[in-house]
Simulated scan of single mutants.
Amino acid sequence: MSRRDQYLSKRESGFNTRFGINANLSTYNALYDPSMRHFFENRGVQSHLYRTGQIDKAGRVIDLDLNKSKLMIIEKEFRNAERNESSRQKEEEEMRRRVQLKRHQALDKARKEEKLIRIKEDRKIRQEIVMATREAQGLIVPSVKTKKKKVTMKKK
């Protein structure tokens, strides 16, 4: 190692590169930098900043740290609104399901009643056919059905 290399190595060993690691530096925001003002006055840049929510309509910078609580409240309201909407939709679907079930039950009941009426009519027709066949063969003598009146005795 040459004398010059020894000198440079000694000189570098005294140089502290860890100085800035523990120092608390303030955060930099280019929107507040006066040197960048000419850049942010451009209309295209301002419309982009407005769309992304970094400035308001008047061109004032929106401090997100200060407005974080407002944003949280708005986000919470959106979540609640979404939750309410989904529960309303579930209730509506359940109501539709119940109505549809009742309609199916009513249709089934009407079909069963209609089927029962047809069965009774068919039975009545069959009985009439059997009676007519028996009468034609002379097995049964037709009789007229009359209702019997109840006779009550009066006490004296």
Rank of each mutant, 00 (worst) to 15 (best):
S2K: 00
R3C: 05
R3K: 10
R4T: 12
D5E: 10
Q6H: 08
Q6I: 15
S9W: 00
E12V: 07
E12Y: 07
G14C: 04
F15A: 13
F15G: 07
R18F: 12
F19T: 15
G20D: 15
I21V: 13
L25I: 15
L25Y: 14
Y28A: 10
Y28D: 07
N29E: 08
Y32L: 13
Y32Q: 07
Y32I: 08
D33W: 01
P34E: 04
S35N: 14
M36Q: 14
H38F: 12
F39S: 04
F39R: 10
F40A: 01
F40G: 03
G44T: 09
Q46V: 01
S47L: 09
L49P: 00
Y50D: 01
Y50N: 01
Y50R: 03
R51E: 06
R51Q: 06
T52E: 14
G53Y: 01
I55E: 03
D56W: 00
K57N: 07
A58E: 14
V61E: 01
D63Y: 03
N67Q: 08
S69N: 08
K70G: 09
I73P: 00
I73D: 13
I73K: 04
I74T: 04
E75A: 07
E75I: 04
E75T: 05
K76Y: 05
E77N: 06
E77W: 01
F78L: 11
F78H: 08
R79P: 00
N80P: 00
A81F: 02
A81M: 03
E82H: 05
N84T: 02
S86G: 01
S87M: 15
Q89R: 13
Q89K: 14
E92S: 10
E92Y: 14
E93N: 05
E94N: 10
E94M: 13
E94Y: 11
R96A: 03
R97W: 02
Q100E: 15
Q100D: 12
K102Q: 15
R103Q: 05
H104I: 04
H104W: 04
H104F: 05
H104M: 12
Q105F: 02
Q105P: 00
D108T: 15
K109C: 08
A110C: 04
A110H: 02
K115Y: 11
K115Q: 14
L116D: 15
L116Y: 11
I117L: 15
I117W: 11
D122T: 04
D122P: 00
R123T: 12
K124V: 01
I125V: 10
I125N: 12
R126T: 11
R126P: 02
R126Y: 03
E128G: 12
E128L: 09
A132W: 00
A132R: 06
T133I: 14
R134P: 01
R134Y: 04
E135Y: 04
A136N: 06
G138P: 02
L139W: 11
L139F: 07
V141P: 01
P142D: 00
P142N: 02
V144K: 07
T146G: 05
K147G: 06
K147T: 11
K149C: 03
K149A: 05
K150M: 08
K150S: 08
K150W: 10
V151S: 06
V151P: 01
M153T: 13
M153N: 09
K155E: 12
K155H: 10
K156R: 08
